[in-house]
Design a protein around this nucleic acid. Structure first.
Length: 182
DNA sequence: TCAACGATCGTCT
DNA sequence: GACGATCGTTGAT
């Protein structure tokens, strides 16, 4: 089975919808690939936790651009975080990729660890993930069994339940079947 | 120019 | 649970 890459229309939708439906999709960067297990939505200038809340700056410029582009920023002096821009050009919003189940079996929890493992840096900021040959998302089956919680590591916007994480049973589907054999 | 802070993580208590 | 590492971005001077 050969999976197609997600088209721009996938990202040109409400950010919460995109964040939820990205769970289970396959992120590809160079020789790495893994399925997305955890996302967060950051939506517009009315969301106080969104980097774009205080307007357009050099850093947040990608968020104001077309959907389907990467937005990678440097944080805490040592980590990068990967986002994918959503919604129409001019409306600043993006989905933060927080968790990835690598095809080698490693589950990366946390945006900083994920980017470090894959080698994602500012070099990959503002890449068009619809046309790029090194950074894109494949349309593998979605995981629809997930929880919604407040976002992590922020001090404002905690009333919004815009973090989406697949339930851990999804990540160990073989456990029940093993038990039923005995 | 300057100082405070941050969508994190590992280590220590 | 608390804290330090480490530095680019930002808004204020």
């Amino acid at each position: 089975m050969r999976y197609k890459r997600l088209p721009r229309t996938f990202f040109d939708r409400p950010t919460v919808t995109v964040a939820q439906e990205l769970l289970g999709k396959t992120l590809v960067f160079q020789n790495h690939r893994g399925r997305i297990t955890e996302t967060e939505a950051y939506i517009g200038q009315d969301d106080p936790a969104c980097h774009a809340a205080r307007g357009l700056t050099p850093r947040t410029k990608p968020m104001f651009g077309p959907p389907g582009f990467s937005y990678i920023y440097f944080i805490y002096g040592m980590y990068f975080c990967l986002n994918i821009v959503t919604e129409e050009q001019g409306f600043p919003a993006a989905v933060l990729i927080r968790g990835l189940l690598h095809e080698d079996g490693t589950h990366y929890n946390g945006p900083g660890k994920l980017c470090r493992a894959l080698g994602l840096t500012k070099e990959q900021n503002e890449i068009d993930m619809i046309t790029s040959k090194e950074l894109y998302v494949l349309d593998t089956p979605a995981w629809t069994d997930f929880d919604a919680t407040p976002r992590i590591g922020i001090k404002q916007g905690l009333d919004k339940y815009w973090r989406f994480v697949v339930r851990k049973e999804v990540l160990q589907p073989q456990k029940n079947s093993v038990k039923s054999l005995s």
